[in-house]
Design a protein around this nucleic acid. Structure first.
Lengths: 117, 117
DNA sequence: CTTGCTGTTCAATGAAAAGCGAACACCGAT
DNA sequence: ATCGGTGTTCGCTTTTCATTGAACAGCAAG
């Protein structure tokens, strides 16, 4: 009781182990969320707030995307005062879907090269 | 010219090398297409016709799904008389997105286990 | 307590995609 | 030429999902 507990409602997380493959794929099959994951992977744990990401959407949409990422077991969030800190669940997610994160974080070899002239 | 050429319009394929990651993920992030890929993986090349798959959709939707799979570099199709034979582009797709097909074809360890009581 | 910042929720819109039935096109066989 | 089987294309409906603006809630500081 003496510990400083958060009065804010804790976000509901889903552990990667309980995430269906389809949910994982769906979560990653979106340009905004893909950007979030990649950007998050470039930072240390708990170093990024939700608003610190460079995405072309408003706060509302952003909040929804983070909820999706939590439900897919990709992101863990912790409250720190008014802001919410994020962490990529690298090891856990990779244990559940080996190689998937590696694939997503690997630089795209040839996204849209023209076939031929 | 003496060779028996197909008068039918050949389906337009996209080589996996030219497929963006997002397109690959989107193609696989669908229950029907996921089923098609898995079922196709269980058969030898050019052994399955489009209509031979056990999916809960009509022909029209099925045709659309196959078009998506072709565009994602997952499936190659060849005309054989009135029917269209399919092949999973295992090696090529795996070279472009290492591990992704393995992941999809791996039996799901724990899709929907209840968290706790 | 009031202000300011962060993030979530609500209600609604718009766009994308999946679905179907019907019509059409192609091939092989009769 | 006609027919049966296979698959595609054409509208059209329905559903799903991303997005927004505004309202709301929590926390920190003044």
């Amino acid at each position: 009781m003496t510990a400083p507990r958060a009065h804010r409602a804790a976000p509901d997380h889903t552990h990667p182990d309980h995430v269906p493959l389809l949910a994982a794929l769906s979560a990653l099959a979106d340009p905004v969320r893909l950007g979030l994951v990649r950007e998050l992977a470039g930072s240390a744990d708990w170093e990024r707030t939700c608003g610190s990401f460079d995405v072309p959407v408003g706060k509302a949409a952003l909040s929804h995307h983070f909820a999706t990422l939590r439900a897919a077991g990709l992101v863990e969030q912790r409250d720190a005062g008014p802001r919410r800190l994020n962490r990529l669940r690298r090891a856990e997610f990779d244990a559940r879907f080996p190689g998937l994160l590696d694939l997503v974080l690997r630089p795209d070899p040839d996204p849209g090269l023209e076939p031929e002239a």
